[in-house]
Amino acid sequence: MKRKISPVRIIVFIILLIGAVTMIVPFAWMLSTSLKEANLVYTIPPQWIPKPVDWKNYIEIWTASNLLTGIKNSCIISVSVLVFCTFTSSMAAFAFSKLSFPFKNAIFVMLLTTIMVPLVVLLVPLFVIYTKIGWIDTLLPMIVPASMCNINIIFFLRQYMTGLPKELLDAAKIDGCGYFSAYWRIYLPLCKPAIVANVIMLFMITWNDYFGPLVFTHSESKQNIQVAIAMLNSHYIQQTDIPLMMTASLIAILPVLILFIICQKYFTESFAMTGIKG
């Protein structure tokens, strides 16, 4: 590809470079700190490459915390939510964009209100509901509601599907397809790029969820990874082991990071192909 080298381009490039440095520095710093001995944390000027490099945190972390169980539970939750939520949300998005049914707009606006009320006040009523149906101290409060819908994804996919031609549905009907198979066989495959992008976002949201697991589960065997990490930090505030905390944070970020790098292509390309128009 031929590129004009204009001064504007150079300036923009430099600005982006500075931006990129600020984006990556905190993570590099986290890595560096996690490899330090506790007392080397307080040195001025800060040491970028720790001397000596101390790997013990990466060993200690597995015994000092409940990280392994946390990862396991987070995986269970994330995978179930990904599978079900993608299905339900895309189905709802299909209905909102392509079908006409009573109260369509009212229902959509209602859904939008769910993200306007602060979760904290719904905590106790939700706890009562979960108690009544026996979900407390199980992974279900993290899995079931999230599996039933995600308003952001519905919103997003609705925009995307609006952009797909309605004629496809009519054609499908003529060919004897029902609505479900029109959705399943025609629209869903066409949404694949948008869905892949959403899968990553959804995974991120689910993986990073902290408040729900904190309140709705009790036993160590049900903690998710974020709760396990927060436990490390909460011990009497004065006695914080900064390198250990950084190690834990890094490990918590890692799975999303890996998934993200693998799916990078889809993530950026799919959004480009969706042609979202807000």
Binding site: T88, M91, A92, L99, L122, I129, M148, C149, Y179
Partner: peptide, 23 residues
């Protein structure tokens, strides 16, 4: 079409009622 549409959004509506409206 109405029936199909309502069925498709039914998980969403149940979510809305049970996990949002009730609390």
């Amino acid at each position: 079409e109405s029936l199909a549409g309502l069925l498709f959004v039914s998980p969403t509506i149940i979510y809305f009622i049970v996990f949002f409206l009730l609390p």
